[in-house]
Design a protein around this nucleic acid. Sequence first.
DNA 1: AAATAACATCGTAATATTGCAATATATAGT
DNA 2: ACTATATATTGCAATATTACGATGTTATTT
Lengths: 107, 107
Amino acid sequence: MGITKTQIFTDKQNDLAQFFKVLGHPARVAILQYISSQNACVCSDLVDEIGLAQATISQHLKELKSINLLKGEIDGKSMCYCINVERWSEIQEQLNAFFNNAKLNCC
Amino acid sequence: MGITKTQIFTDKQNDLAQFFKVLGHPARVAILQYISSQNACVCSDLVDEIGLAQATISQHLKELKSINLLKGEIDGKSMCYCINVERWSEIQEQLNAFFNNAKLNCC
DNA sequence: AAATAACATCGTAATATTGCAATATATAGT
DNA sequence: ACTATATATTGCAATATTACGATGTTATTT
């Protein structure tokens, strides 16, 4: 087995979980923190900054792009990866909705 | 090699990622949603509600407990799993800090 | 004390993730 | 065209996760 049974959950549950999953790696947290602390960012900076191989960083960036948290623009011969502000806010709202939805009067 | 290099990240980054990781499964999202929609909860309800085997639900509950999001109290011969309100709020704040920390004036 | 009920844990098979070397691709400068 | 630089992709080995049947544990009921 070992395969997640996505079909028994709602799309919302799967989407939310997918988002959490992508953020569930310290390298990806670190990448987001670093990118958001700069005004722009190129991947070679990240390789130096994070301390993982270039192939590995590139893979993590791909996953962050897969949920639209980053947008990458070609800037000469390097890439400029930036936070996708709209998506970022949208997700923050979704998370707050998730948290606030919890009725807290139990036990 | 398949092992996450936690040692190259800060404790905060690892903690945040660990939290995201635990929530990064639709079954655990569904469990939290269901528990928070009730005032109390026993595991057998969850098995019916979610549609995974009892052993699997039990495992997911264990992971949610590992980040202190749930507290379980023994209630006769069954368990009452509840949201840990303090921890829940604490994490929500941490996430908002993470999101708000992003400077959004890039590109 | 035996049977039942409600979880928890163990063991294991299937699948996913992580990390990197090697290689591919694309652009800039010479 | 050639070389250097920057990033992406591929392939693979090591490890982690998911799911569940079987079994263990603990408390209630009879």
